[in-house]
């Protein structure tokens, strides 16, 4: 059986930025995203906490659709305990990559 390859960090970055843009666009806004873009905890954060949760669901679904990766993001309480994990786009991408690694290890 052919297994789909695990996504690279660049792939995850692509999924995360597309998911964030989808949620932000749903609020009638556009946003420029880069590794250092603030996700939570600041006035410049791109989403409020409800929007953030919805973005995490988008990421979950996009990863499953594109790569068959079943990881729990929005319902993962540990993710929110680690404040740094959702601080920026880059830290979030790193955390998702680690989740994928731990799921497949």
């Amino acid at each position: 059986m052919n297994q789909r390859p695990h996504p690279s960090r660049a792939d995850v970055m692509d999924v995360v930025t597309r998911s964030l843009r989808t949620i932000v666009a749903g609020q009638g806004r556009a946003v420029w995203l880069q590794e250092s873009t603030s996700l939570t905890g600041t006035d410049t954060a791109v989403l409020d906490s409800l929007g953030m949760v919805m973005a995490l669901v988008e990421v979950e679904q996009a990863l499953q659709a594109a790569y068959g990766e079943r990881i729990v993001v929005a319902g993962n309480d540990a993710l929110f305990e680690d404040d740094g994990a959702l601080a920026t786009v880059g830290s979030f991408v790193d955390r998702i990559c680690r989740l994928i690694e731990s799921e497949t290890a």
């Binding site: 006035d43 989403l47 409020d48 906490s49 953030m52 949760v53 929110f80 305990e81 404040d83």
Partner: peptide, 21 residues
Amino acid sequence: FVDPAYRTSTLYPRLPFAMFK
């Protein structure tokens, strides 16, 4: 309830997770 000054924090969903536990 979340203080509006903390609207971009992760208080949501940390508070409900604490409640479920």
